[in-house]
Write a protein that binds this DNA or RNA. Structure first.
Lengths: 200, 200
DNA sequence: GTCTATACGCAGATAGAC
DNA sequence: GTCTATCTGCGTATAGAC
């Protein structure tokens, strides 16, 4: 494992937990187990290290989405797949969504321009919406607003992760109990969404 | 309007947008239109000013919830009311949830202890869950897991606000269009939840 | 109670030895 | 490539005049 990739791993860990303004170059150096000056040797400054981490984090999400969307399968299956892989991704990257949302909220322009000039591209929800729309036109599923459906799914999947500390506080659960709750939600969300879109 | 309350308003504005580590005492002073030293005169330091803002912000949420929960009405009505007043609160305080979630995630112990020693208390979701459970025992609504239902409602209500910049980016909407989307969701979420819990 | 001036420490960044 | 030492500026906080 190269020093550079060790730094990236460490930086990801620190930035994802503390955010840009909360993260310290020293924290990252400690995490790598090396000197602070090294970070500046490999990445010019904090901003450019952050930029790299943000883009890479964002990319964790994109291919997952796009594979699912472009797949040539019935919309109902597509939605099942979406919920399934999205939930798994969240279980593997619990800090990811709050980090992305937060940094995007802090400075939409900075981030958006970085994303767009990166070329990599965003998940193509336009296409997903089209497919949902067509399916409802064909009578394959109920008449629904595609954007609403997608946002409902994302909300149900992501929010319980994003708000984990809030929820454990409000519902007086410990970490263990709450994780159990999270891991049974995949099936539950799928049932809920199908109940909404499937013709009875 | 006293200087103290002017400071509180300004600090709320700045902390809610930038979070603790992103906020600058200078930003707050600028927002008040007064000198930075004044902040230290009224509130000893940044931490104690923040603490006050956090607690006050948290309290925006609590009574809204507790009024609804303790009300003596059928559970279905209670849920309708919940969605309605919660959505309104979000429309009036769009920065609130991300702020609370974030700061809580940063340092759960610090925040939790501040909340608990504050005495004010948390929303009583235990009671809400009991009432949902009883209603389903009586056959008034479908058999459902109370915690899941509540978290579903909260997710559907809050997430579209929390992730606003992300969603406008992914769905290529401008602020105006997205706000229109948000304001029609109250009815939509209510329909969705009722479809889940109501006996056909 | 409000201001200006200033102290102080921390965090990002650089110089330069090895 | 990695380290130690150091500079610099910024942000919190205080002292003290008015």
């Amino acid at each position: 494992m190269t020093t550079e990739s060790k730094i990236i791993e460490a930086a990801k860990k620190v930035f994802l937990r503390k955010g840009y303004s909360g993260a310290r170059m020293q924290d990252i150096a400690d995490e790598v187990g090396m000197n602070k000056a090294l970070l500046h040797y490999y990445f010019r400054n904090k901003e450019s290290l952050f930029r790299m981490i943000f883009l890479e984090s964002f990319k964790t999400m994109t291919p997952v989405m796009n594979n699912m969307i472009s797949e040539n399968s019935p919309v109902v299956d597509k939605i099942k797949t979406f919920i399934s892989i999205y939930s798994e991704m969240l279980q593997n990257n619990p800090y990811l969504p709050l980090f992305l949302i937060n940094e995007l909220a802090q400075d939409p322009e900075r981030i958006t321009s970085a994303l767009l000039q990166n070329g990599e591209g965003l998940p193509d929800f336009g296409l997903f919406m089209d497919k949902i729309h067509e399916a409802s036109e064909r009578g394959e599923i109920n008449k629904v607003d595609p954007m609403s459906i997608i946002i409902n799914i994302i909300s149900l999947c992501v929010y319980p992760y994003v708000a984990k500390p809030m929820m454990t506080l409000l519902f007086k659960k410990d970490e263990f109990e709450y994780n159990a709750f999270l891991s049974q939600r995949k099936a539950e969300i799928t049932n809920l969404i199908l109940k909404i879109i499937e013709i009875q």
